[in-house]
């Protein structure tokens, strides 16, 4: 954690030696340890990129912060107060501060509800009046650059990128302090992806919300993150400044990851490929 500016302030979110076990599948199977003592923190207004491959536990970490995964050991604190293993009522109260944008914009919005209903729901449960909620919806749609009449239409009438904007609007309804973004642009086309990422950044700069941005894509993480954490098989192998981690990583796994991502330029990709083959040979020599 070599970011001097942030070390002085109190972190917004602290994950302290977090352990998550999922119950074993089938009869009398031992539980599977998905997260092995993870520690990290996120400061107000900051984006922490969380990179890893499938099965690395990055999504589970996000879900644990949201209260959707069982916390076996360690603690998660928000503003110094413990939020792991809360009771249902306390967890619901937390919904004001911690929100989520999921990967799949097709299943994260109820297909049978209008966009307006989706966006007002979190407001109405906390006792807002319907008129206030409607006003807020217009404001939110404007923030995510959707037409004002979008509220009356069903979510399934929108394209993937537009749905993801709706999901972002839903996350923002109650001005959260932290949004967990679980691969929010992976399902989108390239051109849409860039625009949605820019929307994330713009919203952050305006509102000061913090993001935990989970992704498998180093170039995405580099674009949006202030700091990056790299996960591998349930452990955090490297944390640091985004530029440093995504250009000159320390950990062998991060280096493999970086060199494996192809560059959209034939010449440079040939170089990167050669570098990857060299690294693989080196790592094999060390291992063997």
């Amino acid at each position: 954690m070599s970011v001097p500016a942030t070390t002085t302030a109190q972190p917004l979110l602290t994950v302290d030696q977090l352990v998550v076990d999922y119950p074993g599948r089938g009869w009398r199977q031992p539980p599977v340890r998905v997260l092995k003592s993870i520690s990290l923190d996120i400061h107000p207004g900051e984006t922490l990129g969380l990179v890893g491959e499938s099965g690395s536990g990055k999504t589970t970490l996000g879900r644990a912060i949201l209260g959707l995964a069982p916390v076996t050991g360690g603690e998660i604190r928000l503003g110094g107060q413990r939020i792991s293993n809360l009771g249902k009522r306390d967890r619901r109260a937390l919904s004001r501060d911690v929100q989520v944008v999921f990967q799949d914009p097709y299943t994260s919005l109820n297909p049978a509800m209008t966009v307006g209903d989706i966006l007002t729901e979190p407001l109405l449960v906390t006792g807002s009046s319907r008129a206030d909620a409607q006003r807020r919806v217009r404001d939110l749609l404007d923030q995510v650059r959707l037409p004002a009449d979008a509220g009356t239409r069903l979510a399934r009438e929108f394209s993937g990128g537009q749905r993801q904007r709706i999901a972002i609007a839903r996350a923002l309804t109650r001005d959260p302090k932290l949004v967990v973004c679980d691969e929010p642009v992976s399902a989108l086309d390239l051109s849409t992806q860039a625009r949605v990422l820019d929307l994330f950044i713009e919203i952050q700069e305006r509102t000061g919300v913090a993001y935990l941005f989970v992704t498998h894509d180093l170039s995405v993480v580099r674009h949006i993150s202030h700091r990056v954490a790299v996960m591998y098989r349930g452990e955090l192998v490297e944390t640091g400044d985004a530029a440093a981690v995504t250009t000159a990583p320390d950990h062998p796994y991060t280096r493999r990851l970086l060199l494996a991502a192809p560059v959209p330029d034939p010449g440079r990709q040939a170089e990167r490929r050669a570098a990857r083959h060299r690294l693989a040979a080196e790592q094999a020599a060390v291992a063997g």
């Binding site: 970011v3 400061h43 107000p44 207004g45 900051e46 501060d97 580099r222 985004a242």
Partner: peptide, 21 residues
């Protein structure tokens, strides 16, 4: 790369407000 978070972007006073937990 986006670079690191400038110190001025921090809002420690917001954190001082007890969270409604």
């Amino acid at each position: 790369a986006r670079g690191s978070l400038p110190a001025s972007d921090l809002h420690p006073e917001e954190i001082a407000v007890p969270l409604p937990t």
